[in-house]
């Protein structure tokens, strides 16, 4: 199973990024090989639609599940259309969340926020 997590750094000690769409990297962890690879988030600096593009990257990574502290509406539409299940992270460390998920200890992410689109910016 492939587990995606928005990450601040591209090493296994990384913390979970507070933002899904604007995370610097995505950690994609393979629970079978127990190896993680990192994808650069090319959407991180997008003027708009970052969540959509970021979700596309996660979908294309072949992830089966996404662990994230929060997720915007548009990104969630893409993630859910690809049948990727979302769980809410509980810890700062990405790896700790992955371990908790594998033990069935992470809750579903059921709150989707409307996005932080800065139309009045």
């Amino acid at each position: 199973m492939k587990i995606a997590v928005p990450a601040d750094q591209n090493n296994m000690k990384t913390s979970v990024s507070a933002s899904f769409g604007r995370a610097a990297f995505y950690l994609v962890y393979d629970s079978e090989t127990q190896e993680g690879k990192f994808i650069d988030n090319t959407a991180a600096a997008a003027a708009g639609g970052a969540g959509i593009k970021a979700a596309q990257l996660v979908v294309d990574s072949g992830a089966d599940v996404l662990l994230t502290p929060r997720c915007g509406e548009n990104a969630a539409d893409v993630i859910l259309a690809a049948n990727i299940r979302m769980y809410r992270t509980l810890y700062e460390s990405a790896k700790q969340n992955i371990d908790a998920f594998l033990e069935g200890k992470l809750p579903d992410l059921d709150e989707i926020h409307a996005g932080y689109h800065g139309h009045r910016g």
Binding site: A43, A46, A47, G48, G49, A50, I52, K53, A55, Q56, V59, N74, D77, V78, A81, A82
Partner: peptide, 19 residues
């Protein structure tokens, strides 16, 4: 092509009207 990231593709094309 979309510079505004208004499109995504999963098993079908998704259009985000607001974007």
């Amino acid at each position: 092509f979309c510079n505004f990231n208004a499109l995504a593709y999963t098993d079908k094309l998704l259009v985000f009207d607001d974007v």
